[in-house]
Nucleic acid binder design. Structure first.
Lengths: 125, 125
DNA sequence: CCTAGTGTTATATTTTACTATTACACTATA
DNA sequence: TATAGTGTAATAGTAAAATATAACACTAGG
C-alpha cells in the first residue's frame, strides 16, 4: 500500500480500516485479518499495525480478544457515529481552508459542484 | 502559532504564508518579514522557516534577494494559479474521502450544504 | 570602511515514527 | 499436552523533522 509521507503511517492505517469497516468490506462483528497478515498486506511492521489498532481499540471501534483476533465492534450505533464524525471532519476541514482563502459560502458550494461536474465528465459512478 | 503534530511544521508554514499571500495580508511584490522575525513570530527555528521558504522560492511564489529580503512574487497570474491549485487540492481531498465512504456526488454536495447551514446558524459571514 | 540588517548554510543534538527482531500470553484443536 | 494461530510488548537500530547555535554572504547607509 502506498502512503502519504506527510502523515504518520499508523494514522493512515486507521483511515484505511475505517474505510473497510464503513463500506461493507468489514461488517459489524467481523474478524479482522491477523495483525501479522495486515502487516504483510500493507507492507509495514507489525508494531505499526498494532499502534493503529490499539488506538481504535481505545476508541471502541475495534474489540480485541487475545488469542482469537481483532473484531469490528458489533455496535452499529457506534459505527454510524464514526462515519458521521469522519464526514464532519472532512467537511469542516475543507470549509475552513476555503473560507480562509476568502471564498464565500456560496463560492465554496459552487466550486465543489464545478469540481464534481468536471470530474464526472468521463468517469461517473 | 499552534501546529498539527501530524503534519511537518515546514509544510504548515508554507500554507500559512500562502494564506497571507492570497488574502491581502501580503500583496504581490511585498516584502516578507525577515526570516529571523518569522521564526520568532511562529515560535519555530530559523532553519524550519528557511526550509518552507526555499521550497516556495523553487516554486516561484516567493523571490529571494540576498541581503534585502524575501518578496512575494509580483506575478499575479502565478498567484492566481496558486490559489486555484490550493482550492482544487482541498476539493479533491474532501471528494475522495467522502466518495470512499460511499457517499454519492449528490450526498456529498448535500452534506456540505447542510454543514454550512448548521454552521451559519449564529455566525454568518 | 564599518555596522546593522538581511538571506544562506552547516554542525551537532533531540524527538518521533518506523523497522527488525524477539519474546511472552492466550485460544483452539489435533 | 503439544502445536499452530492469535494478540501484546519490549528492545535496539534507522531515518526524518526540528532545534540550538554558529558562521558565512550580501546590501544599505552612516
Amino acid at each position: 500500500m502506498k502512503f502519504d509521507d506527510k502523515i504518520p503511517i499508523y494514522y493512515q492505517i486507521k483511515n484505511y480500516l475505517y474505510h473497510e469497516m464503513l463500506t461493507g468490506t468489514l461488517n459489524p462483528g467481523d474478524k479482522l485479518p491477523a495483525v501479522r497478515q495486515l502487516a504483510v498486506d500493507l507492507t509495514v511492521n507489525v508494531n505499526t499495525v498494532q499502534r493503529a489498532l490499539s488506538e481504535m481499540i481505545t476508541e471502541g471501534t475495534i474489540e480485541s480478544q487475545r488469542g482469537k483476533g481483532n473484531f469490528v465492534t458489533a455496535d452499529t450505533t457506534r459505527l454510524a457515529q464514526l462515519k458521521e464524525q469522519l464526514v464532519m471532519t472532512q467537511l469542516a476541514q475543507v470549509y475552513e481552508q476555503l473560507h480562509a482563502l476568502n471564498l464565500t459560502d456560496e463560492e465554496i458550494i459552487a466550486s465543489l459542484k464545478r469540481y464534481i461536474e468536471q470530474k464526472g465528465a468521463g468517469q461517473n459512478v
